[in-house]
């Protein structure tokens, strides 16, 4: 187990390094482009050359890469061009807001998805199964920006129950969280429900469930002790990897509802060519993604005794 953990950690670090090279190649390696982004399109050639020299961009690429990498590891991502504060500071601040949003989404989406999936997969082909399948295929077909529009139309325009934006300009307001959370849950819970349904249906067909029924166990016990545990193994990874998806999903939702989170920051930075913030956001996003991947792998191994003991 220790070796396994160690290996996963090493793999995680390796992935991060490869990603950092990619980000460096995409955004950093062309010094002139960076200078244009920092100094603006109307800067003169001389100004840019001076800036490049001053900031060490005239050194060899590999020297610059390691310098860049080490300063990132110290938490120094450079200064935001738009906000004029250290990029790391603003990213961490926004990441906190996004964590609140994401946490709420997870808290609702996972139990809802699992419940629907189990109910559907328990009796394949039944009415409850077909209803769940239909609901989930419809909700996963509506993109987040579309459901944001439609739900705003419904709850704000027609019913007038909820505020249309979530900028929290007058302090924390739970009512402003409802729409963003609803949009994200609606889009993603169907996916979990479908995964869980497929897994549950497969388990219910398996010979060991037949064994459990034919050895005279009550139906409840068959479901709770024999089916659920095995059916949860496959969707577990999917659920954890939804964190990764959330990082994408929040961009749209935060932008639409003016929620001051990580996704909106990345988008603003991207539209304004705020290069250091983009770098910081990308690295943080990948860190979270790779981290969840590692958690998913370790958890999967723990849940599945067939892997745990080999």
């Amino acid at each position: 187990m220790l070796i396994f953990l160690g290996k996963r950690l090493l793999a995680m670090i390796a992935t991060m390094l490869v990603v950092s090279v990619l980000v460096f190649l995409l955004l950093e390696v062309n010094g002139d482009a960076v200078a244009v982004k920092v100094l603006g399109p109307y800067s003169t050639l001389e100004q840019r050359t001076n800036w490049l020299t001053a900031n060490g961009y005239d050194r060899d690429e590999h020297v610059r890469y390691f310098d860049w990498l080490f300063s990132m590891m110290r938490g120094d991502f450079g200064e935001s061009i738009v906000f004029h504060v250290p990029a790391s500071e603003i990213v961490m601040d926004r990441l906190g807001n996004t964590a609140v949003l994401g946490g709420l989404v997870f808290l609702i989406m996972v139990p809802l998805g699992l419940l629907f999936g189990v109910l559907a997969g328990m009796k394949e082909g039944s009415l409850q199964d077909r209803s769940v399948t239909l609901i989930s295929v419809i909700t996963t077909s509506i993109p987040e920006f579309a459901s944001a529009v439609l739900l705003t139309f419904l709850f704000v325009f027609l019913l007038g129950w909820l505020p249309a934006t979530s900028s929290m300009s007058d302090g924390w307001d739970p009512a402003q969280m409802v729409l963003p959370v609803m949009v994200l849950v609606l889009y993603a819970f169907g996916y979990i429900a479908r995964m869980m349904r497929a897994s549950m249906a497969e388990v219910m067909q398996s010979p060991y469930i037949r064994t459990a029924i034919l050895k005279g166990l009550p139906y409840n016990r068959v479901i709770m002790k024999h089916a659920l545990r095995n059916a949860l193994i496959a969707p577990f990874t999917v659920i954890i990897l939804q964190i990764n998806w959330l990082l994408s999903g929040v961009i749209v939702v935060e932008y639409f509802f003016n929620y001051r989170g990580f996704g909106a920051l990345l988008l603003t930075a991207s539209l304004n060519q705020d290069i250091y913030v983009i770098q910081a956001c990308a690295m943080v996003a990948v860190f979270v993604a790779v981290g969840t991947q590692t958690i998913a792998d370790v958890g999967y191994t723990y849940l599945n005794p067939r892997i745990r003991f080999t």
């Binding site: 992935t15 995409l26 991207s270 983009i278 956001c281 990308a282 996003a285 990948v286």
Partner: peptide
């Protein structure tokens, strides 16, 4: 497979944003 893992570990929209910014 390693290469694929690395690309897949990017949150997809973040990847798009980076590519399209570039």
């Amino acid at each position: 497979s390693r290469l694929g893992d690395v690309i897949l570990s990017f949150p997809i929209l973040v990847l798009y944003v980076v590519i399209i910014t570039t």
